[in-house]
Nucleic acid binder design. Structure first.
Length: 285
DNA sequence: TAGTTCACCTGAAAGC
DNA sequence: TGCTTTCAGGTGAACT
């Protein structure tokens, strides 16, 4: 379940493979994922050089020469896997040397450096689109500041939460307020800041929001350093697992003792907006 | 207008 | 052992 740290880890794995490489062949194995693929996507990708590979929120953005950008969202279960075969030789439409497509390999990109990038997504919540780089993509227009960037501050949280009656957990999942947070890291950041996920966002003091702001950054930086969290579906581009799940304090730890020093509480699971929330009712207020 | 719920989707795990 | 049910969650649309 890729959130910002997982997507950033994938980007770092793909960057040396894709940057300045030319897509020699694009294979699209189905017409859609979450949404239909853009018209003639394989044809439009073939022969294009990747000038840069960026990340915005949970989106990967491959800037192509010619002024277009390939947008990639991994959804819930999307993986970008990199393989290399020195002897890969294209004959007709089949590339000898690379493994045959596996189940759920929806898009396969072969590069002129012999590398192959495969987008595999069993649950098909992912997406791909092409858009004019300069015009931007509507999905990106509404997104809030990057949590690790200069635009995200405690003051921003104060302003964004002002008057909000919804629970802080729900507010932090709103990508318009802050980009890239998902269920796991919101639970972890709220626990680290001692704030109950049930508390109305607009009723948290500026001082506590400053603590929350710091906790969000701290948990995201730690997760990126660990290569993300591997639960069920996620893999790095190399196929390796991330290991931040070993650093979880509350997520998926229902019934275990609260890890906060001196806290007698037990990690509890509740449901908010049809989603699991994990918290310690003793030290999160 | 703001907040909440649902649908999409498949695989793993649990329950029977 | 095999079948059925439940759960996981990012996002936009529909609903309250």
């Amino acid at each position: 379940m890729p959130e910002l740290p997982e997507v950033e880890t994938v980007r770092r794995g793909l960057e040396p493979v894709m940057t300045n490489a030319v897509i020699s062949r694009a294979q699209v194995n189905r017409p859609d994922l979450r949404w239909p693929f853009p018209a003639r996507m394989a044809e439009r990708l073939t022969g294009r050089r990747v000038a840069a590979l960026r990340r915005r929120s949970k989106y990967l953005l491959a800037d192509l020469d010619g002024g277009e950008t390939l947008l990639i969202h991994l959804g819930m279960s999307g993986r970008m896997l990199v393989t290399k075969d020195e002897s890969a030789v294209q004959i007709g439409t089949y590339v000898h040397g690379h493994a045959a497509p596996a189940k759920h390999d929806h898009v396969v990109l072969d590069f002129d450096n012999g590398m192959r990038v495969t987008f595999n997504d069993p649950r098909r919540f992912g997406a791909m689109d092409l858009f004019a780089t300069e015009a931007g993509h509507p999905l990106l227009a509404r997104i809030g500041p990057e949590p690790l960037g200069n635009g995200f501050s405690a003051a921003h949280l104060v302003q964004a939460f002002r008057g909000k009656a919804s629970p802080v957990k729900t507010a932090l999942l709103d990508q318009r307020i802050v980009a890239g947070l998902g269920n796991i890291y919101v639970c972890e950041a709220l626990h680290r800041s001692g704030i109950s996920p049930r508390r109305a966002a607009g009723r948290i003091s500026a001082a506590r929001l400053a603590v929350l702001h710091a906790a969000i950054r701290q948990v995201l930086e730690a997760a990126i350093a660990a290569g993300g969290s591997s639960l069920r579906d996620y893999r790095q581009a190399s196929g390796d697992l991330g290991y931040f799940q070993h650093g979880f304090r509350v997520y998926d730890r229902e019934g275990r003792p609260c890890p906060t020093d001196g806290c007698p509480g037990t990690v509890t699971r509740i449901v908010q907006s049809s989603r699991s929330t994990f918290l310690c009712p003793q030290c999160q207020r």
